[in-house]
Amino acid sequence: MTEHEHAASVGEDVELEAFRRLYPLEFLEKFLKDGVRPDGRPLGRARSTLISVGSLPHAEGSAMVKLGNTTMLAGVKLEVMTPSVDFPDEGRIVVDFQMPAICSPHVRPGRQSELEPVVSEQIRNALSSSMMVDLRELNIAPGKAAWMAYLDVYCLDSDGSLLDAALLATAAALADLKLPEVAVTDDGKVLPASSDVQEHRSLKNIQSKRLKLGKIPMALTCAVHPKYILPDPTAEEEAILKTTITVLTDFSGQLFSLYKPGGEVLASTSTVQDCFALAKYRGKELQKIFNNAVIDAEADDAMVED
């Protein structure tokens, strides 16, 4: 490239960037008219999705999810608790979604982002309405001891569709979760399996196991423009369009919940149906990715045990 050409292309870059900043909606619409998104994907597609499980050795279950640039890291830590009187054979799962200051220029340290409690609550609702984990799976000794699973989801890079990525990370971390082998005394004391058996004669061993998973919930956020529907929006698209509809389903397309938090565009029945159809398509796509990631991890496990 000659120096002159180089200078010209720099000038164009600056102009493009200025247009993008000054007229964001027009900028976006120019792309949509041609049936593409600013990041180059077709209108109705989600970004490339990557799931890897078991990346944190300190945690009993962990997963990292990348949805385009949006990155989530989820880890499960286990503690023993005394179950409540009402549900003596059930454990608990506590979900906490957090956005540390690294994830976005808009998060200020010390001030909690509004999104944190909202996404935490949505994940919690998704887990309970999908019944992904039967809480009785977390039982150790009925009425005496059960597992309390703390699930922390951290957003490492925030670039739109946070709930979609966070929920996927939650599901993958729970699929990766392995309850450790423990020994239980008669009075409900839980000891590591390696404890000296001589001291406690009434010791009962409980094998290490993975959770049996029910229907796995997934979310698809769609940004809505009066003419177009954009599934899996980036932070830029979310900021320009302001209206989103989130559909929560399982991988087979069974609907759990719908969420449209206000916005400028009113959704008609057909818009909602379109979103639902997109979610169904996305479900099939995600199921493959999810199963591959989790099955790979289990195969690795088996190899280690051999």
Partner: peptide, 21 residues
């Protein structure tokens, strides 16, 4: 120059809370 250090809840062997601040 401002700096903030934080730790993930699952970063250590035992889960610790209220790291911030």
């Amino acid at each position: 120059v401002k700096c903030e250090y934080s730790m993930a809840n699952f970063s250590t062997g035992d889960r610790r809370r209220k790291q911030k601040g």
